[in-house]
Design a binder for these strands. Structure first.
Length: 379
DNA sequence: GATTATGATTTTCC
DNA sequence: GGAAAATCATAATC
């Protein structure tokens, strides 16, 4: 059954109602001029009003209607009949009257529901497919990032968690209490504040605009068929528009956090010398394994634990030490002698077996360490 | 303030 | 991918 047939059959069903069923408010009788208004005529009236623009209607009514008809109206919404015969909006009274009569008609909701149904199944059904968008992955990424950085969601002490993570990543202690750390927190809190303030503004504007549009559509739904579903769709469209603005805000915030974070990490590059004990442990290992100063992963972990530094710091230290020793053996000779003696003393105090266990590769224990190169030119 | 020492990063090589 | 080599950046020393 096509829409037109369905509409007509629906209307035919409505037409079968008795006058008592339909009712007949006085206003309608007066305005339509017939005690038993045919349903088709009502439909025609509706179509006439809804199809034509206000300007067209106004122009037509001004031409068609004689001034004698402009006398007055029982429509309280009109501006009264005296002095000119037009309603508040400048529309002829007849036009206003007819509209009001239709609004009051008991059949209007049924007719409008049929029209809404037709409308729903034609134009809106096409849009409906496009409107069911999945959540935007970009927004999800931005949201996750803002959440992780402590900008959105519950406050993490001004982003101290992120700062701690950044500090840990840089190999430093998160409890440094450095100036950079507090600066980072303060600036992140500032970004957070601006973000929330702007977000609130957007949400408020969105809410206000949505309400405005909803009221407008509800008002218009008195004179043209607008289903609640259509209003919902319109609201969804508005929300999508505002969410695209929100995405820009989120992007800007993410960029600001990234810049701040990179500055913070740069600041963390400020190196701090390892403490004396850590340097001693590392040097001891280096000079006692001078023939093969390449600690295994296990040895690195052990050294890192002993020195309270990270494994990568141990790797860095050995990398630097190897290259610098190789470049200037003479300069390091004294230091090498010192640690050789120390190692010898230590070795004497512990069992030879323990000494072996401590040195997976053949250690240069005892004697003066001398540079030793591997065939490929390495130490 | 210049110099040196040293931890970290980047580039290059195998 | 790991190590060497070069380089950067800052702490420490004079």
């Amino acid at each position: 059954m096509d829409d037109q047939t369905r509409m007509m059959s629906g209307l035919a069903g409505l037409g079968g109602l008795s006058q008592a069923d339909v009712g007949d408010p006085d206003g309608v009788r007066k305005s339509l001029g017939q005690p038993q208004q045919d349903i088709g005529d009502i439909l025609q009236q509706i179509m006439a009003i809804t199809d034509e623009s206000l300007d067209e209607a106004q122009a037509r009514c001004w031409q068609e209607e004689s001034p004698a008809h402009w006398g007055g109206s029982d429509d309280p919404t009109e501006g009264g009949g005296a002095g000119g015969g037009t309603a508040g909006g400048g529309l002829p009274l007849n036009f206003q009257h007819r509209k009001h009569a239709l609004n009051c008609h008991r059949m209007k909701p049924a007719l409008f529901s049929v029209l809404c149904e037709i409308k729903e199944k034609t134009v809106l059904s096409i849009r409906g497919v496009q409107e069911e968008d999945p959540p935007d992955p970009q927004i999800m990424r931005l949201d996750n990032m803002l959440l992780a950085e402590g900008v959105s969601g519950p406050e993490k002490g001004g982003g101290s968690a992120a700062a701690a993570a950044a500090a840990a990543a840089a190999g430093g202690s998160p409890n440094d209490g450095s100036i950079e750390h507090s600066d980072y927190r303060a600036k992140l809190a500032q970004i957070r504040q601006i973000y929330h303030s702007e977000l609130e503004k957007y949400e408020q504007a969105c809410s206000e605009f949505t309400n405005h549009v909803m009221n407008l559509l509800r008002e218009q739904s008195r004179t043209r068929p607008i289903s609640p579903k259509e209003i919902e769709r319109m609201v969804a469209i508005i929300h999508r528009k505002f969410s695209s603005i929100q995405m820009q805000l989120k992007q800007s915030t993410c960029e600001a956090v990234m810049i701040l974070r990179s500055r913070f990490l740069d600041a963390r590059r400020k190196r701090r010398n390892f403490n004396k004990q850590a340097t001693e442990v590392l040097n001891e290992y280096f000079y006692s394994h001078l023939s093969n100063p390449y600690p295994s992963e296990e040895a690195k972990e052990e050294l890192a634990k002993k020195c309270a530094i990270t494994v990568s710091q141990v790797s860095n230290w050995f990398g630097n030490k190897r290259i610098r020793y190789k470049k200037n053996i003479g300069k390091f000779q004294e230091e090498a002698n010192l640690y050789a003696v120390k190692t010898a003393v230590d070795a004497a105090s512990v069992s030879a077996q323990a000494s072996q266990a401590n040195s997976p590769a053949t250690p240069n224990s005892g004697g003066y360490p001398a540079p030793c190169y591997t065939p490929d030119g390495r130490l």
